[in-house]
Each structure stands twice: as C-alpha cells, then as structure tokens.
Design a protein around this nucleic acid. Sequence first.
DNA 1: CTCTTGATCTTCT
DNA 2: GAAGATCAAGAGC
Length: 210
Amino acid sequence: MPRPRVPAAPRLPSLGPPLRRAFFARSVHEVAPELIGATLLVDGVGGIVVEVEAYHHSDPAAHSFRGPTPRNAVMFGPPGFAYVYRSYGMHWCVNVVCEAEGSASAVLIRALEPTHGLAAMRRRRGLDDPRALCSGPGKLTQALAITYKHNGLPLDKPPIALHARIAVPKIVTGIRIGITKAVELPWRYGLQGSRFLSKAFPNQDRHRPA
DNA sequence: CTCTTGATCTTCT
DNA sequence: GAAGATCAAGAGC
C-alpha cells in the first residue's frame, strides 16, 4: 500500500507571556541572547526571533556612542520601546531599547522565522520563499510593515507584541554584520541551525549564559 | 556558491 | 561632503 502523503505540519508557534519592561531593564548583553526564540508580532504579523545584535552605548558601532541626536533620541529613553531608524536611505531597521533611561543601549532585530501572517508578508515582500521574507533587518521591517511611525512605541502594547520564548534554545554567537567600527566584538546571537538567518554563523560556538 | 556593484537619502561633520 | 547596524541583481567560478 502506498503510504498516504501528509503535508508537513506547520511549526506551531509557542507563545509565552508578553515581555514587559522589566525584561528589557537589564544589560543589553543579557537581553540579546534571551530574545532568541521570542516571537515578534506587529498587527499580528511576524515570527520567531532567530538573530539579533547587541549595541551598547560604550560601543563605537552604536548609534548612541557620540551622544544624543534627534535620530537616536529613543535609545536614550526608558527600556521596552522600539527604536526605528532609516538605513542606507531606503530600509527601516528596528531595535528594542534596553537597560535604563539614559543608558542608550539597544538590541537590533536582524532576522525572524516567519510564523504569523505569511500571506501579508509575501505580499509586502513580493516573494514566496519563506526564507527570504524576514532574513535581514531591512527585510523583516518590510514584511512586518515597520516604519518610522513605530519609532518610540512600547513593545507590549498594540500594534506591537513581543512574546517570551517557551524553551531555552541553542544559541550561537559571532561578530556583527555590516559594520566598520568595533568589528571584532562577538555580539551577534543566533538560533543554532536556523534556516532563516541573514547569514550563516561561520563557527558554531555555543553561547554560554553567564 | 562568492564577490561586486548600484540604488538612494538621511544624518552628522 | 562622506558615511552608513542594507538589499537585490548580475557576473564569475
């Protein structure tokens, strides 16, 4: 008897409770790896965070390194809010502000595994391949329709939702992508083995929680 | 697969 | 005036 063909079951997203301000009010280096596995939704569309980068105010690559400006004002505000900026004149990128007011540290969301609202994401991106929908900081903002109007919005109120992960995933680390200052700092974090990263992690060094 | 290049424009010097 | 937390397409291997 031929075995009946069953379509691959879609991965069931496991949504933990919404992440509140206290989660973000810690060192950016604690928050960044713990965001791997969380689920980011904007108006119900989004997916599982599989890649992030940490930017600390003492870091020459951080937008806040040289002090407050109109662009980075949200970074200097309280934790738990979205910092959105324009990249290369044509893309948006989204960060989550961490630590404390005035600390000016944030985590850049670099890639998602799409789980919610695939049709909307495909329409906005003009693509079918799920691996191409959110595999980069500029791609995911287009898929989720994140723009400057989301700059400064809280991460725990509509239209934005960021849910805690259920289980602790295996995390890999590496140097950050696309920067020209402090290039050696290993502050990029990814979900080990994910097919939805912006770029492969050259090594498979596992992250060791402190 | 990797590497190179053009697009496009805001921000800060 | 130059740089920049990017992307997509095209060439070459």
